[in-house]
Amino acid sequence: MEKLVLKNITKQFGSDTNLVTALDDINFTAEDGQLTLILGPSGSGKSTLLTILGGLQRPSQGQVAINGQNIDQLSTKEADQFRLDHIGFVLQSYNLVPYLNVKDQFTLVDQVKPKGNVTAQKFESYLNTLGITKLINKFPTELSGGQTQRVAIARALYTNPDFILADEPTAALDSSRVEEVGQLFKNIAVQEDKAVVVVTHDLRLRAYADRIYQLVDGKISLEEI
């Protein structure tokens, strides 16, 4: 069953002489049970594509359908609720809230979404895989770049989302961590039947992907594996 579909998506910024076409007639599908990789150089439109997928931005043209429901015309409020219920974002600049400790980064969301988050047991296993169990009481300033990135990944998993959208989740990680994160995403996709979309220029993640797209200058192409 297809889950996440982009149909003829175009996204343009600015107007007239400043017009930038970040995405040009994109057709894209991500299925649950699969890890979908979008590879592309800097400035190719990866982040833009991901924000449109997650309902953070509206496309200039085209449709975004999730489970057959169009989300591109949702109101801000509906889009908020939608993200809260269905989407886990790992942001490129893995922003943590500086005055909350690691544990509170996760549980803050309980205040607006008390139900449907992952069980403590399962979350514990995520923390274990990510190697951040011991960091739970630290504050973001006490974490290294790689640790921060892994906390951001855990935060995205906490709400037990149907879709995980990750923007460069491995940029700050060394090779062994990359393998673990790749494997974790792969496991979540396969074992929990979720659609995981990872946007990256990190070729090391290729090994875990079920489907790979190449994005160049806003144009996308499906790679045959």
Partner: peptide
Amino acid sequence: VENFAVLRAQGIPSRY
């Protein structure tokens, strides 16, 4: 603003 924006990206409503 940046922290708030992250929370908004998570889907936490601005009203909250």
